[in-house]
């Protein structure tokens, strides 16, 4: 019963987000600020994680391909596939659900408990449009983050593979280009957009409708991470089932 009500309140929120628009010049500024807070500020950690995880994926693959009949180029092929299909879009998004999501929930939640949201409302501003809409727009740039994660993951794989002596750059190059399916990229970015929407809206919803004080803001952030990551995993399953099978 509670879940049905939650789902209802989430969609009702979405409806309000796209109505009662804030003054354009103010909205534009808010969007730039959110791009900075949500997207740009995530680049560092994304770059770091992707590079090293890409390296680890390559090493693991190489260590498991001991059969001399299997060509060495398969290492790069497998690295590319796992990074583009799952690691960059899905796992990076779960990490972002933790980083960006809890930031969103705690910032909106603390505005709620300190009456800042009431203040917006009293002034005749639609708080949902003012707070959530810029986040959704900013998160539409999130696929660029994932593109970076794909690129650096593969670079990390190359560095670990070639300089670690698991393969050489010719084999790696052959593997990278081997049976490249452009649709896989479409699939990966399509789901990234869906995840971006989830990361922008679910934590906003958690923060907006919370009640209580500072302690509850902390609880809401934790809840928000659970909801967001569960939804990402479910959406991933559904999209994969629909597009790839």
């Amino acid at each position: 019963m509670k879940y049905i009500r939650d789902i209802g309140s989430y969609f009702l929120m979405l409806k309000k987000v796209f109505g009662g628009f804030t003054k354009g010049s103010v909205l534009r500024e808010l969007i730039f600020k959110e791009i900075d807070d949500l997207v740009i500020s995530s680049l560092g950690i994304v770059a770091f994680i992707s590079f090293f995880v890409g390296g680890v994926i390559t090493i693991q693959t190489a260590l498991n391909l001991t059969n001399p009949l299997i060509p060495k180029s398969l290492i790069a092929f497998a690295t590319r596939q796992s990074i583009i299909l799952e690691f960059a879009p899905t796992f990076m998004s779960i990490i972002m659900a933790g980083k960006v999501g809890s930031f969103i929930t705690s910032s909106i939640g603390s505005m709620r408990v300190t009456e800042q949201i009431d203040a917006l409302e009293v002034m005749g501003i639609n708080p949902l449009n003012y707070l959530v809409f810029p986040k959704i727009v900013a998160m539409m740039f999130y696929p660029l983050v994932i593109a970076l994660a794909m690129f650096l993951g593969i670079v990390g794989g190359y560095v670990a593979g070639v300089y670690g002596g698991f393969t050489n750059s010719t084999d790696f190059g052959i593997g990278l280009r081997d049976t490249f399916e452009p649709f896989h990229l479409i699939y990966a970015f399509l789901k990234t957009f869906v995840f971006a929407f989830i990361i922008a809206t679910v934590p906003s919803w958690q923060g907006y409708y919370m009640k209580g004080g500072a302690l509850e803001v902390g609880k809401a952030s934790t809840n928000s991470f659970v909801w967001t990551s569960v939804l990402i995993i479910l959406a991933n399953y559904i999209i994969t089932q629909l597009l790839l099978s």
Binding site: E115, A119, G124
Partner: peptide, 21 residues
């Protein structure tokens, strides 16, 4: 009309409710 009215309302909240960003 409601929005216009709201523009003519000033409200001092108990905790101040200043935007902390």
């Amino acid at each position: 009309q409601q929005r216009e009215l709201r523009e003519n309302i000033g409200m001092l909240f108990q905790g101040g409710a200043l935007f902390d960003s």
